[in-house]
Amino acid sequence: MSATRSDSDASVTALDDHVERRPQTTPAGVALTILRWVVRIVVLVLLIDVVRILVTSKTIEWGTVAHYLTFGQILSGVLTTLELTVAGMAIGIALGVILALMRLSSSLVMNMAASGYLWLFRGTPLLVQILFLYNLASFIPRVTIGVPFGGPTLVSSDTNSLITVTSAAILALGLNQAAYMCEIVRAGILSVDEGQLEASLALGMTRRRAMRRIILPQAMPVIIPPTGNNAIALLKDSSLVSVISMKELLYQAQLIYSAQFNTIPLLVVVCIWYLAMTTVSTIGQHYLERHFGRGTTRTSPPSFRQRFGRNLTSILRPGRAAEGVGA
């Protein structure tokens, strides 16, 4: 068919009814392939070495790790960490939705209040917020609910009796989280086409009902993934409240190793538990995303197992995964 073409281009093979283009071997290509294999081997050796250090290290004392992994005090710390995360996220989501609606409202006062809140809580470190809230009593001695500017008082309480270690920890984590959730929820709401609100109003729904029944459910696919990331971040950041001696996972470990001097094994225990919790959360997040994705995609996204299987395949056969990026 194309004798002239085969003559001019050695890499094209002529067949009966078509020609095939063949990959060309160039010195640069060969060098790149060798380099790729060298990098792979170096990374593999490094990985093996890390595992060897972890397994054979004298300071880790795997026996001690195993012992403390299911130690009562540690388990109660794990439970407290989970409670802090759930409570912090609950406050964060509830307040975050309110803040998002305030930011989207046409009222200038609402808008400014929400923006000010965001500015304050996103602009200062969480650790400082925790310490500040814990020491709130020395700043605001009494918390009073009543008519402002000298009006009658309805409820009044000593700040010290309101702010305990637990309430300070939960509040600080929740209030901080709310600032981040606000932006996530706002982005989610804005991602929903305005026609959805108009159709709801035209059918006789109030704005509030339209928000709850129509807008927010459709904002979920946009809201869930970053919320999951935030929840996982909060799970880890909850270790910060150990500075106000909240007895969560890290603080419990610190209590043990400050008495027993087995610092590294207990920090390994802490890491194992955090990894276990974040791993489970990641899987949970995936199924949540699948649930709220219905109606927005024609087919369901692959399940976690399918996705994991695919990743595993590409790890085991690096050549295939690298093909797309090849020379």
Binding site: Q196, E198, A199, A202, L203, G204, M205, P217, T296
Partner: peptide, 26 residues
């Protein structure tokens, strides 16, 4: 007020150029 307006709107059907069906519902 919004509630009364909503009641009045419920008696007027509207069909939009871009349908505006609720995407998360059958």
């Amino acid at each position: 007020p919004p509630r009364e307006l909503a009641a009045q709107r419920s008696a007027i059907g509207m069909v939009f150029q871009h349908f505006n069906l609720f995407g998360h519902k059958t």
